[in-house]
């Protein structure tokens, strides 16, 4: 750290500083989600945690894969996989903007020497049934952060809302280090004091994945994978819906027979253990496969709308199931706090 006194932050120091800053503001520091996602928003740490009433603060790095953005490692500004630092503040504190500006100071940006603007930029993800109101934060003409007040997620209106801060780490690092190519960013200084660059670490990654994403990925198999993951996800959410649906009013004379046919969760425990989180991972798989197919040019504009709608339906169904599960868990905790704790210990 002493070497950074006169030098701008390295890529990993940038991450460390943000982690340290947000940890100091009561954030859970999470690890990146280990399923391919296009943005930090898609991590369950955001997508699912913003649902329901429970307050939550979290910060995490999220490598974000967008196959179509790949440039074979040849474009100095574009990557197939870029790195986001994502912060969720639920509910947002009144001084959320000031906190954000402090975080910039923490990564070595002296705002008195720069020009910062909050310019309208509302975020929307049709695939996730999510949208929010906010800004792109511009620093000397460079968009460094997307700042969003989430209003809806998975088709569910949020209350409380969450503030989502998404830092574009490569851009910020290139800005801090004043390099024109992402690949020249210093990731770390090695034991010999020589820089290890972003290119050293990631160049091959970009080249090979560009080849795979644009040329090699097997379109027929991708479709097959997409259909399989979709079916599995759908089966799970369908089962959850079936077991939680309001019982229909039985016809006269058939009361008993009908009631026995309805599949229900036996108890709260079986409901809380129902695999909604895996269903979400399956949904993320679908989303990534869609992006791959898109990069392969295998989805016509007409089909596009349809596939997006399919994935959106999954995301919305998962979000509903998750919100329902959380509600039941919360009710159960209130009803019998001791028992709930015991159960929690028991499962760990």
């Amino acid at each position: 750290m002493s070497s950074s006194k006169n030098k701008p932050l390295t890529f990993q120091e940038l991450i460390l500083k943000l982690q340290e800053f947000w940890a100091g503001r009561g954030c859970v520091l999470q690890q990146p989600h280990d399923v391919e996602v296009g943005a930090g928003t898609m991590s369950p740490e955001t997508f699912l945690r913003v649902l329901g009433p429970r307050p939550h603060r979290v910060g995490y790095v999220q490598p974000s894969r967008r196959p179509a953005d790949g440039r074979y490692g040849e474009n100095p500004n574009r990557l197939y996989k870029h790195t986001q630092y994502q912060v969720i503040l639920k509910p947002p504190p009144d001084n959320v903007q000031e906190l954000y500006l402090e975080s910039l100071a923490a990564i070595g940006i002296d705002l008195r020497k720069h020009d910062i603007k909050f310019e309208e930029d509302n975020w929307e993800s049709p695939t996730l049934g999510a949208w929010g109101i906010g800004w792109q934060v511009m620093l000397d003409g460079l968009e460094i952060t997307q700042f969003t007040y989430f209003q809806q997620c998975g088709g569910i209106d949020l209350d409380p809302i969450s503030a989502e801060l998404t830092y574009g780490l490569e851009r910020i690092a290139a800005f801090l280090q004043d390099v024109d190519s992402i690949y020249d960013i210093v990731w770390v200084y090695g034991p010999d004091g020589q820089p290890v660059t972003y290119g050293d670490i990631r160049q091959l990654d970009e080249e090979q994945f560009s080849i795979y994403n644009f040329e090699k990925a097997d379109v027929a198999k991708l479709w097959q994978h997409l259909n399989d993951y979709e079916a599995e996800c759908q089966a799970l959410v369908d089962e959850y819906i079936r077991k939680t649906a309001e019982p229909k009013k039985p016809k006269k004379g058939q009361e008993t027979a009908h009631a026995e046919n309805v599949e229900r969760f036996a108890d709260v425990k079986s409901r809380r253990r129902f695999p909604v989180l895996p269903a979400f991972d399956l949904c993320l798989k679908c989303s990534h496969l869609f992006n791959l197919l898109d990069a392969r040019g295998a989805i016509s504009v007409t089909e596009r709308v349809g596939v997006i709608a399919r994935i959106r339906a999954l995301a919305v169904a998962v979000a509903r199931a998750y919100a329902d599960q959380q509600r039941v868990i919360a009710e159960d905790r209130e009803a019998a706090p001791e028992k709930a704790t015991a159960a929690a210990v028991g499962t760990s």
Binding site: K113, H114, D115, L139, D140, G141, L142, F175, D178, D180
Partner: peptide, 9 residues
């Protein structure tokens, strides 16, 4: 500094 940053972008 600000000019330099904007030129880069």
């Amino acid at each position: 500094l600000i000019r330099h940053g904007n030129e880069r972008v």
